[in-house]
Simulated scan of single mutants.
Amino acid sequence: MKRTLVLLLMMQTATLSYAQKQSQGKTSGNPIFPGWYADPEGAIFDKTYWVYPTYSAPYDKQVFFDAFSSKDLRTWTKHAKVLDTANVKWAKRAVWAPSIIKKNGKYFLFFGANDIQNNHEKGGIGVAVSNKPEGPFKDYLGHPLVDQFHNGAQPIDQFVFKDKDGKCYLIYGGWKHCNIARLKDDFSGFLPMENGQVFKEITPENYVEGPFMFIRKGKYYFMWSEGGWTGPDYSVAYAIADSPMGPFKRVGKILQQDAKIATGAGHHSVMGSAKKDEWFIVYHRRPLDQTDGNARVTCIDRMYFDQDGYIKPVIMTNEGVKP
């Protein structure tokens, strides 16, 4: 009971901070919405911005996803419980790090569940589907898409990447290993690569978890999180390659704690316009007055590149971004 009250007070503090920033009216403010949320994936559907985060709570309570939408990156609408484990029979606890993609008029939400520790436990990476980005999402397969430890990668932190040729890949992995696998067109499983391999390891130096990939000017930017997710050293690094298969040589960190702003900045995503070359990084961080591992908030800031195509270090702000 005491811990519950403490968590409620902490969430109220975060809400007040959010309300104060929103009242300025000129920018999004950081965090962009109230409450403890982490591992955000940003997406753009029909000229609307969407963010799908983890509900950051103890694993036995982390059993649903909320989503948030905005037309201008400043004012956000909450869509409560777009997916609940009540609609996924095999998922009992700890759902996190959602990744979403639209295909053939449907929205597919990939997620990790149950925090399995070996090949004998039930859980892993699942898929849910809906006709609308706000859900409700329901289990698509009736079982996990990935439930084994291939190449040493815990089946968590899934990201769905669509290449220029329309092929889709699942990039995922915890425990300092990252795999890529080509998805079938209907997302029901995987297709083997030319050499017969299904799960190819693409782990770069210092990789821990939270993979993300995007294309800019013909180059593949592969990003990931380093450090421990409960600690102040959580951060984001990246590599650049000519193919989604790599090889990926680590360039360096672009997002990390700022003693004036927040700690534990990591597990991000990127959204924006390749045509306009305008990019935003969506990520979570821990307020300076918080030490609880689950006290994480979702933020957004601009992400810039230098003339050689390298990502400039992200400057975390309390102001966020302009509409």
Rank of each mutant, 00 (worst) to 15 (best):
Y310R: 08
A262T: 09
F280P: 01
G272S: 12
M303L: 14
L255A: 01
I261M: 12
D301H: 05
R285L: 00
I254L: 09
L255Q: 07
I311E: 05
Y283N: 03
Q257M: 13
K253T: 14
S273P: 07
I315F: 03
G264I: 00
Q290N: 02
K260H: 13
C299N: 10
S269N: 01
Q307S: 15
M271Q: 05
I315L: 11
R286Q: 11
V314R: 01
T291R: 11
L255I: 09
I261R: 07
S269M: 13
G272H: 05
G252L: 03
S273R: 06
T263G: 13
G309F: 11
H268A: 08
A259R: 10
K312E: 15
R285D: 07
Y310A: 03
V270R: 01
I261A: 11
D308P: 01
I300Q: 06
Q290D: 04
A265Q: 10
I300K: 05
A262K: 00
N294M: 05
K260S: 15
T291E: 13
P287R: 02
D289C: 11
Y304A: 14
S273L: 09
A274N: 09
K275H: 12
D258H: 06
L255V: 10
V297H: 01
G252T: 12
K253C: 00
I311Q: 03
G264C: 13
S273F: 12
G266I: 00
I311D: 08
K260D: 15
I254C: 06
R286N: 08
P287Q: 02
V314Q: 07
E278C: 10
Y283P: 04
W279V: 11
